[in-house]
Amino acid sequence: MRTIVKGLIAGAAGTSALNVASYLDMVVRGRAASSTPEQAVDRLARRADVNLGEGEQAENRKQALGALLGYGTGAGAALGYALLTARRRPPWPVGVVALTALAMLGSNGPLTALGVTDPREWPPSSWVSDVIPHLAYGITAYAAYAVMDG
């Protein structure tokens, strides 16, 4: 149980860092928030035949559910890491890369599978917008987990 709790706490810390990095990038470059989480929610709702409402109400639900999917991804990536490394924590570079990769796969994998995005077609600026916040996630989640691990 302790491993699960540590993983979830590390995921929450990492997700907070990812959000801060994303918002700072939006401020610096003056870019809008990504609409891919809302698009994913829309496609999932259609596939599951779930009615999210009409008009503004539906758009607000998509936005909220998209954000919640992000929190779930962050929690899941760190939880997976915690379970995989419960017996032996890897050195920090390996752990940071593993957590970063788990978070990127957890977010971009489903988006790609749903046809919302295709990372093979991203320009360099999109990769920067994706890698840097996920790296902030990986560093912070690893540090949080390491601190709790003693």
Results as ranks from 00 to 15, higher is better:
111 L>I: 03
137 Y>Q: 10
64 A>D: 10
66 G>P: 07
121 E>L: 13
145 Y>I: 08
110 P>C: 06
139 I>L: 12
37 P>E: 09
67 A>V: 14
66 G>R: 08
32 A>M: 14
72 G>N: 04
67 A>N: 12
14 G>F: 01
147 V>E: 09
62 K>E: 15
14 G>E: 04
90 P>F: 02
101 A>I: 09
86 A>E: 07
34 S>T: 13
108 N>T: 12
37 P>R: 09
63 Q>R: 15
70 G>H: 02
30 G>V: 09
50 V>P: 06
76 G>N: 06
66 G>C: 10
69 L>P: 03
98 A>K: 02
84 L>G: 05
147 V>W: 13
118 D>M: 06
81 Y>I: 10
82 A>S: 11
17 A>V: 00
69 L>H: 06
51 N>F: 09
68 L>W: 10
103 A>M: 14
121 E>T: 14
4 I>Y: 11
89 R>D: 11
73 T>P: 01
86 A>G: 00
5 V>Y: 03
13 A>M: 08
24 L>P: 01
9 I>E: 05
77 A>P: 01
140 T>A: 00
70 G>Y: 02
86 A>H: 01
75 A>T: 02
47 R>F: 07
36 T>A: 15
27 V>F: 10
114 L>E: 03
59 E>M: 12
140 T>S: 01
27 V>C: 05
102 L>M: 12
150 G>C: 01
135 L>W: 00
140 T>I: 00
111 L>P: 02
108 N>Q: 15
123 P>G: 14
26 M>I: 12
17 A>K: 00
80 G>Y: 05
84 L>W: 04
24 L>V: 13
100 T>P: 00
40 A>E: 04
114 L>A: 05
91 P>L: 03
116 V>D: 06
85 T>Y: 00
29 R>G: 07
59 E>V: 10
145 Y>C: 03
13 A>G: 07
73 T>V: 15
115 G>Y: 00
150 G>E: 08
97 V>I: 14
44 L>N: 07
59 E>C: 08
91 P>I: 04
51 N>H: 13
65 L>N: 10
98 A>N: 07
74 G>P: 06
96 V>D: 01
90 P>I: 05
23 Y>H: 14
36 T>I: 09
133 P>V: 10
10 A>M: 05
26 M>Q: 15
40 A>R: 02
63 Q>D: 14
